[in-house]
Design a protein around this nucleic acid. Structure first.
Lengths: 349, 349
DNA sequence: GAATTTCTGATGTACGTAAATCAGAAATTT
DNA sequence: AAATTTCTGATTTACGTACATCAGAAATTC
């Protein structure tokens, strides 16, 4: 049997109350006594039974997810996963809520973070816009002792406790490498469709993509980035213009959420010979992958990210260590042949 | 606050003991009374607090993993992950143990399953050899009420409760599709190196591979399967013979654990122009991927599989539902550019 | 209608920890 | 040395569930 607080009290020769004071860092214990208790804890290899502790505390963990507004399918998928996790959250003493803010709006984001701090939640997960206002708001959360993780897009040099998301430079490299291989010796430049260079994940993907393309045996031009603000209409216009202007376009790397507009533009232009690599498996990209319009989709699993964020925030709130291997978010590569069953086709067993 | 057993007792107008009898399916409750209690449970939306229940039961779950012996790196990786999970298992009231049996030996496997049944464990995870003896042993576990999941390789038409592993037909299809794209118009046949056609995962991968290759625009011969029994020396000999016999070999699909032998044979033959797609990210395949000998590695994450098996077995033991979406094991595609940090390079945060 | 069986209620203990209270011991100050 | 402050011990209650016991009520059988 694993040791309990009673065992510690016995071997340390102190009372239960003293052990409790040491364990929970409460005042009222002399240095020598504290040392004795800590020695006993170490000797017995005691680890607190978190389940019992939470039961006794009857503590609940209100966690807030701050996500961008709009019809970005990936973000809406994230939101859906948060809600889905919320269904099971009761049994884990967690209460989840979602706050949405205008996309790419640093001020609104900082305000939302401050709001969560004011509500004294026990954890915050935020899709970060990489801006100073946001960094200082994150600093305030840290100062208030509230664990905060960045989700999907990271924030440089801030006090965030953890980043939940894929390595976006590696994602870009992967896209570049696949693009190069798929194109082989075929000539023609490559276009890049992004949301905004104001979010770190988009910048990093572009960086990786360019690096990998540069290493390819066949040199290939990369056209100036098209920033569609993750808006379908805008992305469609930009892409259509590009197709018209560059008749020998060989490939498109869509590193943001402009896929709906991209697919529409490709259909308009009747260009099904272009090698397309996109991010995030959504209804649109899935259909385009099956139809052959898109050749590969790089994906981060929203469900996994949400569950990871919850685990990390809870661990941080409890002062427990995070199991790094379990929390690493993998980059999925999907082609037509390894598409998973859709969310509506779950076998439910 | 979420409802407790006391709330149910109050609203149903019965005593705590009766509620307990209904909840835990104990005898001694009249039909009408039971209905009243169940109505109250439904009305209040009661869900049992698993943490408190486990605390009260102070139950431990002894789980057994039955894995093949030998120096198969993937299997040793699985074993390592089980041991790693064992470190954290105390806090989850789980006790893990590993039993190894000779690879591809159905009789020994069946015997190991019967041994676990005799020990009255609360769950069994087994890397299945697809044979009748094994199926009947699985049937005996089912009859004994012991949850059993197949791991990595499934078992047809048996009473296993769940399969923890990737969709191997899709894995084969993916390999075939990537092989076709990477080779492009280059001529030459493709070789397949397997472990044994007696395990279902290898058969399924081959099936998917052949199907995907057949759908490619360029027809390509697939040579007869080389069965290396997942043994390095044997795989090396088979592969060397093949390289000598087929000078225009364009690609190799290694769907088993013969990668060490494969890489050695390629080095012997000084053939670095062959497109190689292999399974499972190990030290060998990682090095070969970085060196450019192997072009893509399809991987199933051993750590994820082990944790999934544990979650599923515990859920089954408790009679709880399994969250299908969370337990789907994904097929990772690794190329040089999206290799994750190695196990020794964990950032540990 | 009495005897039996079956059901139900009341009550208590346990799991391992948190947290509070109060009394007494030890150290410190006056 | 007395008064005060600081530390420690003993004890109790609580969290939500599991499980056991015993007595009494209700239903069933004879």
């Amino acid at each position: 049997m694993r040791p309990t607080v009673h065992d510690i009290a016995d071997t340390a020769g102190v009372s239960l109350a003293t052990v409790d004071r040491v364990l929970n860092d409460r005042p009222g214990v002399r240095g020598v006594t504290r040392a004795k208790v800590e020695a006993a804890i170490a000797a017995l290899g005691y680890v607190r039974d978190v389940a019992a502790a939470n039961l006794a505390k009857s503590r609940v963990y209100p966690l807030v997810f701050i996500l961008p507004e709009g019809d970005n399918p990936f973000m809406r998928g994230l939101e859906a996963e948060v809600r889905r996790a919320g269904l099971h959250s009761a049994s884990e003493r967690t209460r989840l809520s979602v706050v949405t803010v205008p996309a790419f709006d640093a001020g609104a984001l900082a305000q939302a973070i401050d709001g969560a701090i004011a509500e004294n939640v026990s954890g915050i997960a935020v899709v970060a816009v990489d801006a100073p206002e946001v960094s200082t708001a994150v600093g305030r959360a840290h100062a208030a002792g509230i664990p905060l993780v960045t989700l999907v897009s990271d924030l440089a040099g801030s006090g965030r406790d953890h980043f939940v998301g894929v390595d976006n430079i590696a994602a870009g490299r992967t896209a570049g490498s696949l693009m190069g291989r798929f194109l082989g010796g075929r000539p023609g430049p490559v276009a890049v469709l992004a949301g905004s260079m104001r979010v770190r994940d988009h910048r990093e993907r572009l960086e990786g993509f360019c690096a990998a393309m540069a290493e390819m045996p066949v040199a290939r031009a990369i056209l100036p980035v098209l920033e569609g603000q993750d808006d379908p209409a805008r992305s469609r216009v930009l892409m259509s213009e590009c197709l018209a202007a560059v008749p020998d376009l060989a490939g498109v790397y869509s590193l943001g959420a402009g896929n709906q507009g991209l697919v529409a533009a490709l259909a308009d232009g009747e260009r099904d010979d272009i090698c397309v690599i996109a991010h995030e498996l959504t209804a649109h990209t899935r259909a385009a992958l099956e139809a052959g319009t898109i050749d590969a989709v790089l994906n981060q699993d929203a469900g996994h990210e949400v569950r990871s964020a919850i685990r990390v925030l809870r661990a941080k709130a409890d002062g427990l260590p995070v199991i790094a291997a379990q929390e690493r978010i993998r980059l999925d590569i999907f082609i037509k042949d390894n598409l998973p069953a859709g969310p509506d086709e779950d076998d439910g067993n």
